[in-house]
Computed example of a mutant assay.
Amino acid sequence: MSPERADGRRLKGERRRRAILDAALRVVERDGVAGVSHRAIAREAGVPPASIAYYFAGIDELLVATLVESADLLVGDIARMRERTPPEGRAWVRTIAENLAMMIDERRARTIAEYELYLLAARRPALRPAARRWFEIATGEVDRAVDVDPAAIKAVLAAIDGLLLQALIAEHPPGADDFEPALRHLLRPVLADDG
């Protein structure tokens, strides 16, 4: 087989795997984890059901890959936040508030799906390392930026999870202006706030 043909097959395989991962997240967004099956994901991805088994040993492996993909999206979010935010406390608080508001508004279905997968890890040990990856990534990013007590970082991240969960069930979803006061208070030990 020629190298070009092998590369073409590899690219086609990568596209199909990506389509399956994207479809899995859409199924969780729409139907919850209870709606996840080989057949449902294959239908959503537009691939034969056997393709799911070819790329993933089982549903748990697919869900792990979906959680890892979500963690990678978080890395991208953090990188974009860093690019557009000056390195001072007040600006960071606002940027985080805007990102949380976007997660509740524009990416609401994805945020719900991610939390549902995250909570599923409590019942399925195979998903736990992938679920913890979110926390490890966020902690690592904060550690790189500031020198603070790791317990303070854990408390802030846990509180942000709580803010997001409360926002998801709110009658009127909060915006950045609603998140900002709580974040300013939470982030006081983590970021040097200039006022």
Score class of each variant (00 low, 15 high):
D7H: 10
R9F: 09
T66D: 00
R107C: 06
E88P: 04
G162W: 06
G89W: 05
M1V: 06
G58C: 10
L100G: 00
V36S: 09
A152R: 14
H38W: 14
A176Y: 03
A24K: 01
I112T: 09
K12C: 07
R15D: 08
D105Q: 14
H185N: 08
R43Y: 01
A6E: 06
A91V: 05
M102N: 14
E29R: 01
E114Q: 06
A50L: 13
V27T: 07
A182T: 14
V68K: 13
T95F: 03
R123Y: 11
D7R: 14
S70R: 07
A130H: 05
A159V: 08
R184K: 09
L73G: 06
E61F: 04
M81P: 11
P189R: 04
G46E: 01
S51E: 15
E116L: 00
N99S: 13
T111M: 05
D161A: 09
V190W: 02
K12A: 13
V75G: 04
P189D: 00
S37H: 09
E106W: 11
L191I: 07
L67W: 12
R188V: 04
L168C: 05
R39P: 10
V47P: 12
V146C: 08
A131Q: 00
E29T: 01
E88M: 03
S37Q: 07
M103V: 07
L63S: 02
L183Y: 06
I104P: 01
V156I: 10
S70K: 06
